[in-house]
Design a protein around this nucleic acid. Sequence first.
RNA 1: GGUCCCAUCGUCUAGCGGUCUAGGACGCCGGCCUCUCACGCCGGAAACAGGGGUUCGAGUCCCCUUGGGACCGCCA
Length: 498
Amino acid sequence: MAGEVIVRFPPSPTGYLHIGGARTAIFNWLFARKHKGKFILRIEDTDVERSTKESVEGILDGLRWLGLDWDEGPYFQSEFHQEHVDVAQRLLEEGKAYKCFCTKEELEKKRQMALKEKRSTVGYDGTCRNLTPEEVREREAKGLPYVIRFKVPKRSGKIGYDDKVLGRIEKDYSEIEDFVIVRSNGRPLYLLCNVVDDIRDRITHIIRGQDHMANTIRQILLYEALGATPPVFAHMPLTLDPKKRKISKRTHGEVVSVQFYREHGFLPWALVNFLVLLGWHTSDNREIFSKEELIEAFSLEGISKANAVFNFNPDDKEKVKKFFTDPKALSINAHYLRTIPVEELAGYVEKELRDAGLWDEAYKGERRDWFLKTIDLIRTRFHTLKDFIGPGRAYFSDEFEYDQKALKKNIHKHPELKELLPELGERLDSVDSWTLETTEEVVRAYCDEKGVKPGIIINGIRTVITGQLKGPGIFDCMVLIGKDRVVRRLKECGALYE
RNA sequence: GGUCCCAUCGUCUAGCGGUCUAGGACGCCGGCCUCUCACGCCGGAAACAGGGGUUCGAGUCCCCUUGGGACCGCCA
């Protein structure tokens, strides 16, 4: 019994995978990998009206992109419908559940009354719990619709469990109402299905958000009634927005969807690394982990109790577009962008270039070396993959934008460059071997000759050939962009003054 | 309103009674480097929510207050 660890990620397909769900998946996946156990994917599509095929695809797609591979599934909860119904029937037969004929309207009325009178028990009052078999038959004969409620044992004292994150959690039996497990249309509810599925899948650990805590006690009751041992529970802290509200796709939109990060040039592992830090840590507070390191380091003990804020700026949008999401996420992404093997980066950049119509097959053939050198050079100040087709565009195309600030500061402020740069272009044109040394020599000599500060010329060149205000050392840029392009761009710089 | 959970810099967090004049990371500020920016390096501002206990000693244990959050569906 000390055996295998089996965990599951059970999203309900009612929208795309968002970072909260992704985080839950990550924690479960990590736990499974750490213990060489199984990670099961189960789609909880019991609520047919809200579940869509596109959602399922979106979720699978998101998980795959993040690199969270599952060992079983995806299973679809709806496929086990009959089993759920059978279990409910069994509970009914064993007297552990009962039919309740109260209508929604009646219950709503009662709830309002209770609320109004400020009574503590707003829940179900147990009206149908004590119906005699005759009374039940009578109502059934009349064709009255009914739901099936779980009969919470009448015991004194508390029921509880030891949460791996929160510690001992207990609740008084008297405070638990008889809850519905099957709808009046015959469809079992999540609370029941979830337990039945977890028992069937032999789930050993349930790692989920603290928003599920209220369900846990009731589910433990269900496990008991079904004669099964409850799994170990670990309730993770929630991810909140800067205003401390629970994040949701509905209120926060794209910025909380996993897809958003893919579209904004994130490396999948960088997102995983960032997300795992939201509510988990090691005792040495390390923050950058390779996949192997993370799996090795992960443990339930490191999960925080307190909710974590996902620090994006919903209001700041355009003002600080440098930080379109949590600055730390960006910083971690930049870290990986600058440190993963160039060959690995090449694959990601290829995709960006292809999508932007800038890809050249030669980058995989005779220009491979140039390609790798180039992305290795320019990545040092990039933050996302999108930068390769933005600020880095001039390396791959003759059609690139000029940064307005750069134009103003490095070009327009120095009218003399309109004559100087094309002339320098001529000089450079006659350079035989195009290297770091030769280009620097020619440029510096030209500066001396004209009595112009090197900085002015150099920054002018930078803006003319890359369109940027900033960038790598200028001679590196020149070498990589190549003689022809550099010369041409310098000669044609007059256009920038128009 | 009821039940439950939580509480260290702006944010993520280290801290599991003394080594805390509270450490790291991101962000921010200043400096070095320098052809720019970035990287890197150096330095700085920045927190134990408040009040009671317990203890020789509390960020660390207990209680209260305050604050925040979750749940309270025939949703999952």
